[in-house]
Design a protein around this nucleic acid. Structure first.
Ligand code: MN
Ligand code: MN
Ligand code: MN
Ligand code: MN
Lengths: 226, 226
DNA sequence: ATAAAAATTTAGACTAGCCTAAATTTTTAG
DNA sequence: CTAAAAATTTAGGCTAGTCTAAATTTTTAT
């Protein structure tokens, strides 16, 4: 059985490994856990002892099969609770992360199964992130970043990479919601900002900083959530 | 801000204080927290430092006003989550205690308020226990134990004092559910067991051990929950 | 190729919560 | 009223998770 802390480390190793491909560094983990590198090293030794990670001193870290299985369970719980908070309790998508961060650690197979059923077995969380299957598979969506879309293309907003309240509030403010269609009208070469039309409605300016964090799909996919 | 452990101690001091009136003893807390008396003493010193309890060495302990306020918040969260688990997720009343024991520690004013609204502001949890008000008042029900009811009386089962899975399963087995009416047909003097009729239906035997843990009301009150 | 910089680990220390064993205080019984 | 029993506290120690400062290894840049 793992502690809250160990579960958090596993989850963060998983997401860092997927962001930059390959081994995860001590410093990256220290930043993400808001601790110091020395503390991370201690924890890595413990996780390695428990066979949850592959760890060679100075060489970075990688999840074992068992470690990944556990990480995906935590992520599954996190995302299911986020769906609950938004769809059932009426929270905004910018308000749920911290609460889900605590709910994700309540370990009861039965609870997760019932919650999943109750929510109608959702495929995506309120940020468009796929929910790992009960069997522990993480669906791979082939999304691109809006910052990589060519001029004139017509795409659909499927997910966001950044979950901070400020970022999500900013999107609300620009009328950018999951599932909305986006047409790229103009790309400014000097700062890579874009001018897009949302649906058939208004035209908004999106900075490169923001565009990098919007995942889109060319296909006319069904809306993930709303 | 209090830790999980501190919250658990406050909650247990509250319920022990209400059970046997007056100061709560170190040993009683040790038994209830499944720790040793020495550990309890350590924690009592800490809670006293934080002004959450009145504590004089060797003299037992009592909650301060602030301590009681916090204890009631924890109890409110616990009972609301129990309602959620039973009414929304379909758990049995014998399965929810341990999960609620973890959920109760998630501190978000907003979460509790929304959950309360979502559940329809319930007054009682699945065991018939009153849910403290948001303002921190614990409603006082004037229930009696079934073991104290006179022969021939007609009462309504309102709550249970024991929450263990075995006990609750035993009640299910005897068709004893919250809100059912009970007529005392016979009281055996040698072992204090009773023979009762449930509603207009079958007649069951109830040992003193069980009857002591059933709270009833003479009035034809509306069913608390079901 | 090597020296400086950056990343990482080790050493030593702290707090929260828990334990056992021993000391102390309160209660109970004769 | 006193001696034994029971309850409680103190002393000293352990683990998880964290920290700072110092040592070590790897990377980067001349
Ligand atoms: Mn977490
Ligand atoms: Mn999310
Ligand atoms: Mn608890
Ligand atoms: Mn209850």
């Amino acid at each position: 059985m793992q502690s809250f802390t160990e579960e958090n480390y596993l989850k963060m190793i998983y997401s860092l490994a997927n962001r930059r491909q390959g081994e995860v560094s001590t410093n990256a983990l220290a930043e993400m856990t808001s601790t110091k590198a020395a503390s991370v090293t201690d924890m890595l030794r413990k996780l390695a002892d428990k066979q949850l990670i592959h760890y060679k001193k100075y060489q970075g870290v990688r999840l074992t099969e068992e470690g990944e299985r556990l990480a995906l369970q935590v992520i599954r719980r996190h995302r299911l609770w986020e769906v609950f908070l938004v769809q059932k309790l009426g929270f905004g998508w910018d308000e749920v992360h911290d609460i889900a961060e605590e709910l994700e650690h309540i370990r009861s197979e039965d609870l997760v199964a019932r919650l999943d059923t109750y929510l109608g077995c959702p495929q995506f969380d309120p940020h468009g992130d796929p929910i790992p299957t009960p069997a522990g598979q993480m669906p791979e969506m082939g999304y691109r970043k809006l910052s990589e879309v060519a001029m004139g293309e017509d795409v659909c907003l499927m997910a966001v990479l950044e979950h901070s309240t400020e970022f999500l509030k900013h999107l609300d403010h620009s009328n950018l919601t999951l599932g909305c269609s986006i047409t790229v009208n103009e790309i400014n070469t000097f700062d890579k900002s874009v001018l897009v039309q949302i649906g058939t409605g208004r035209t908004v300016f999106i900075s490169h900083e923001v565009a990098k964090n919007l995942l889109v799909d060319s296909r006319q996919s069904v809306v993930a959530s709303h």
